[in-house]
Amino acid sequence: MKFQVSKKAVGNWIIQGFIAFGIVYLILFFVYWLNEKSTIWIHLSLIIKYIGIGLTLFFVVDVFIGPIYRYMNWSYFIEKDRVIIAKKSVIISTKTEIPLCNIRSVNTTQNFISKKFNIIKVELATLGDVHDIDGLNEENAIFFKDHILSRFGDKADESK
């Protein structure tokens, strides 16, 4: 069964990007303002300006193009005995296969922005790693979690 990232996740990721970059820009502006008040390092203001230009270019790509690209190229599958997380990018494409028998816990998380969009992140914990499945709508996330947890019940029944 294939799950696609929710369209609402794009708006969620854009708003989270605005908040993250807003904090970085505030810190950068504060350092620039402090440097203008005291001329300890004359060249620091020039360096901060170049960092600001670079961050602006990165901001445009990461906040506006990145979420759309993630929406189009991330997908998740549940097969009979495994979960497959497929993520395609410009440079690297990954396909992670997690056998259901290796999953130790399934958690769902939601921050305050994701709650407004009804977007849930499902975390699959194995012995060696935690795999995030981000951007699922509430229905799919609950179904996804229940389907995986029902396999745990099947294993418990088989061991009796």
Rank of each mutant, 00 (worst) to 15 (best):
K116R: 11
F117G: 10
F117D: 04
N118C: 10
N118E: 12
I119M: 08
I120L: 07
I120E: 02
I120P: 01
K121H: 08
K121C: 09
V122Y: 01
E123R: 01
E123Y: 02
E123V: 07
E123L: 05
L124E: 00
A125E: 07
T126Q: 10
T126D: 11
L127A: 14
L127H: 08
L127F: 08
G128A: 15
G128D: 11
G128W: 06
G128C: 08
V130Q: 04
V130M: 06
V130D: 05
V130T: 15
H131C: 02
H131Y: 07
H131L: 04
D132I: 10
I133Q: 01
I133K: 01
I133A: 02
D134M: 08
D134G: 07
D134Y: 10
D134V: 15
L136A: 07
L136H: 02
L136T: 03
N137W: 10
E138H: 05
E138F: 06
E138S: 08
E139S: 12
N140W: 08
N140I: 09
A141S: 12
A141Q: 05
I142C: 03
I142N: 06
I142Y: 05
F143W: 07
F143S: 08
F143T: 07
F144N: 00
F144Y: 09
F144S: 02
D146A: 14
D146E: 15
D146S: 14
H147F: 14
I148V: 13
I148K: 00
R151F: 15
R151T: 13
R151Y: 15
R151N: 15
R151C: 15
F152L: 13
F152C: 08
F152Y: 13
